[in-house]
């Protein structure tokens, strides 16, 4: 079943008197639990697609459906609630809140919800995530006391803390050395398999594409190739 569905999505940015067509009728689906990647060179539309799926931007035309719900026409409050309930984010430059420590950064999205979760349950869940990303010795550290790899691990735990159906990662390894980048991707893959969370990440590094089930290749705002491998290929065949 498709958890994400883009149908003839177009996005036009206006820069002064110039119109930039970032997306030119993009259509694809991503199934629940997939580990999918958007690849392509800079300016191909990867980040724009992630912004649209992440409900932080709206398409000029076309339909974006998240969990079967079209995001077109939703107001800011509804989009914000949808983001909180359904989506997690991992950013290229980590984007941790500098005034919060590791534990608090991971806990942060939970505090934005309206439903109160028992403190003990929250603590156990965050402790589990911290252990999964291997930061149990840095729990009280502030972001500026962590390395790039450690920061991205915190970001992964933060993205997963609300148990979102979808995690969006915008070039999560771009600011990391290749070895740390590989570790981060393996960690994301592990969480994808353990929690069955759909992961979509953008990258222009074709060497890491091998890890993904579903590859969407973009060029100049259009999907030029879509391939399935591993689990996704098996499911597609079945």
């Amino acid at each position: 079943m498709a958890i994400i569905e883009l149908t003839d999505v177009r996005k036009v940015y206006t820069l002064g008197k110039t119109e930039v067509h970032a997306l030119k009728g993009v259509s694809f689906e991503i199934a629940s639990g997939e580990f999918a990647s958007l690849i392509g060179p800079s300016g191909s539309g990867k980040s724009t697609i992630l912004n649209l799926i992440g409900c932080i931007d709206q398409p000029t035309s076309g339909v974006v459906r998240i969990n079967g719900t079209a995001t077109n026409g939703m107001n800011d409050r509804e989009l914000t609630t949808l983001r909180h309930q359904t989506l997690g984010f991992i950013f290229q430059s980590f984007n941790l809140i500098p005034v919060l420590n590791v534990y608090e950064n991971i806990e942060f999205p939970l505090l934005l919800g309206k439903t109160a979760v028992p403190k003990a349950e929250v603590h156990d869940w965050i402790t589990y995530l911290v252990e999964q990303v291997g930061l149990q010795d840095h729990i009280k550290h502030r972001p500026n006391e962590l390395s790039g790899g450690q920061r991205q691990r915190v970001a992964i735990a933060r993205a997963l803390v609300t148990r979102p159906a979808i995690v969006l990662a915008d070039e999560p390894t771009a600011n990391l050395d290749s070895k740390t980048g590989q570790t981060i991707l393996e960690l994301m893959k592990k969480m994808n398999e353990e929690l069955n969370t759909t992961f979509i990440f953008s990258t222009h590094d074709s060497t890491i594409v091998g890890l993904t089930d579903h590859v969407i290749r973009l060029l100049d705002g259009e999907v030029v190739e879509e391939t399935f491998q591993g689990r996704a290929a098996a499911e597609a065949r079945s």
Partner: peptide, 13 residues
């Protein structure tokens, strides 16, 4: 950027 991050994670205006 920080505000954008908080908004992305579901902080209302």
């Amino acid at each position: 950027k920080e505000i954008g991050t908080m908004r992305a994670f579901g902080m209302q205006q």
